[in-house]
């Protein structure tokens, strides 16, 4: 078994309104920053032991499918690194 950190990034699908990101963008503009757009994401760093990087990826993907992301509104991606 090898120790991995799987990083799951969950973001709203394109076209889904993100009021929190919009509010954050407006707050940055009030601080006189110039920016075109801002998107917020949720990032989960999951430490796990697995037989291979593929196995770690598969397990983290299932976590995203079953809980971390809501497929109605979210896309997600998974990256795996040895820890």
């Amino acid at each position: 078994m090898t120790a991995y950190t799987a990083t799951v990034t969950v973001r709203l699908k394109r076209g889904v309104l993100d009021p929190e990101a919009e509010t954050t963008k407006q707050a940055l503009e009030r601080l006189d920053f110039e920016l075109e757009d801002l998107r917020s994401t949720d990032r989960f760093e999951i430490d796990l032991d697995a037989a291979s990087a593929d196995a770690a990826h598969e397990r983290a993907s299932e976590m995203a499918e079953r809980l971390l992301a809501n497929p109605t509104i979210h896309d997600y991606d998974v990256e795996v690194d040895e820890r």
């Binding site: 309104l17 009021p19 919009e22 509104i73």
Partner: peptide
């Protein structure tokens, strides 16, 4: 209900935040 698949769609952050 939506999160569990009893009904379709999702209820998420109000437009007004």
């Amino acid at each position: 209900g939506c999160e569990s698949g009893l009904t379709e769609g999702a209820f998420t952050t109000n437009e007004s935040a």
